[in-house]
Design a protein around this nucleic acid. Sequence first.
DNA 1: CGTCTGCTTGAGCCTTGTCAAGAAACGTGG
DNA 2: CCACGTTTCTTGACAAGGCTCAAGCAGACG
Lengths: 244, 244
Amino acid sequence: MSGSCFAEVLSELIDLTEVERRALEKLEERQRPVRRGAVLQRENEVCNELFILRSGLMMSYVLLDDGSRQILRFLFPGDMLAISSAVYREAPETLAALSDCVVSPFDRAALSEMMTGHPRLAAMVLVYSQIERVALTDRLAALGRTSAKARIASLLLDLRNRLRATDKSISNVFVLGLTQEEVGDATGLTAVHVNRMLRQLEEEKMIAREGGRVTLLDERALGRAANYVNRYEGLSLNWLPRQH
Amino acid sequence: MSGSCFAEVLSELIDLTEVERRALEKLEERQRPVRRGAVLQRENEVCNELFILRSGLMMSYVLLDDGSRQILRFLFPGDMLAISSAVYREAPETLAALSDCVVSPFDRAALSEMMTGHPRLAAMVLVYSQIERVALTDRLAALGRTSAKARIASLLLDLRNRLRATDKSISNVFVLGLTQEEVGDATGLTAVHVNRMLRQLEEEKMIAREGGRVTLLDERALGRAANYVNRYEGLSLNWLPRQH
DNA sequence: CGTCTGCTTGAGCCTTGTCAAGAAACGTGG
DNA sequence: CCACGTTTCTTGACAAGGCTCAAGCAGACG
C-alpha cells in the first residue's frame, strides 16, 4: 500500500484522475507509527495537524468531568482524522490508537491547497464528513431510543462492515479488538452490562464468541434487533463537480 | 432581510467579498413559506432539494421502528438544511417546522457550482458541517454518559445561545417553542421525566418558568450541571483559502 | 361550550448501574 | 518456559434512575 489510503477509499465511489490521485498522495507523503494505547491528539490541547489513518484501528473520545468517557467514533484505514480539530484552535476530542497504527500527518494548509486546486476532491471531503455525520446521528438515535442489547448488536454489525471495507476476506467472523469497557464507552453502557448483553446475544444464538473472536451467526436477527443501516451505501454523487 | 441569511451567518466569522456575497445570494433567490407542523422532507423519501432556513424554527428527526422518535437537531435561521440528504439518494432524516418558517430551496447543482467557483465558500461549508458534527458529538456524550437533569440543562443553554445568535435582544429569558415531548425526543427521555426534571431545576432556582417562557436564573450552575460548551466559539479559520 | 393537546403528579416496575469477588487471559522479566 | 502482576472477563446481589400507566387539570381553539 504505497499510494494514498484516502485515494483508495475514494476510488470505491468515484473514478479519480491521475492529477487528483497525485494531489491525494501529497497528503500522505509522510508516515508516522503510533503505538497501541498512544494518544495522537488530546482533547482541549492545541492541534495543528490532521491525519490520514494508513493502518490499524483508532478511536476518538471525550472525557466528561466525572471521569466517564464517551467514545465518539472508531477510525479505520483511509479515514481522515481530526478534520473537526482543524476548525478549532483546541481539539474537541482525543485521538488514541487501539492497535499499533501508521498515520500520515499533514497540515491545514495542505488541506486548503488540495480543496482549492481540486473542487471535486473538496466535494468528496464534504461527502465523507456527511457520511460520518449521518453515522453519528444513527448512534445518537441508538443511545437515545434503543435498548442495551440493540446498541451492542448495532456496534457489532457496524464494526464488521467497516473492517470488511478494508479487508474483503472478513465474512462473519472477526476479531473484536476492543475490551468490554470500550464497547461500553461507545454504547453508553457499563462494562458489566455489556458483558451481560453479549452473553444474552450468545444464548439467543445471534453470535458466538471464543477468545476475542466474534462470529455473527444470525445477521438478519441482529439487524432487526439493531435497526442498523450501512451508511456507506445508497449514496448519490452524480451532482459532483466535473473532474479536471 | 433581503440578502442571504447564510451570508449573514458567515459574516460573523469571515469578511465576505462582494463576489462571494452574490454567489450566496444566488442560493437564496427563491423563497418558500412552510407552515408550523409541515414536513419539508421525509426520511427515506427521494430528495432533490437543499434549503437555507430564512426564518422560524425547524427540527430534524428520525423515527425508529417501534415508533419512537429521536430529534437530531434544531435548525435556526441561516442554517443550511439537508446537506446530508444531498449526499444520499434517499433522505436520512425528516425535516419539520416547529413554527411558521420561510426557506430558500436550491438544488445540488447550485451547491456544486458555488463550491467550484468559490473555494473559500466551499471551505466554509465544510467548517459549518464540522461545527455541527462537534455539536452532535457533544449530544452523543450527553445521551451516553450524563443524567437526565444534565441533558435538560444542556438543551436549555444551547437553545438560548442559538436563539441569541439571530436575535441579540435575547438575554436569559426566551420562549421555549417546544413541547415537553419534543424536549424528551431530543434528549432521549420521556415527556413525563422531562417534566419532573424541569420542576427540579425550578426548585433548585436554576430556572424559572411561566407560560412557555423560560428564564435562566443561574447560568453558572446550569453550565456546571450540563458540561456545556458553545461550539460556535473557539474556531480557528486563518488557514482558509484566500478569497478571490 | 366541548374537544383536544399539553402539563402535572403519583405509584409501581424494569432496565441498567454499582459494588464486590473470583476466574481467566495476557504481558513481562527472569 | 515459568512465575508473577495486571488487566479483562464473569457472575451475583442489590440499588437507583428513568419508564409506564393512570388520572386530573389547564389552556387553546373551533
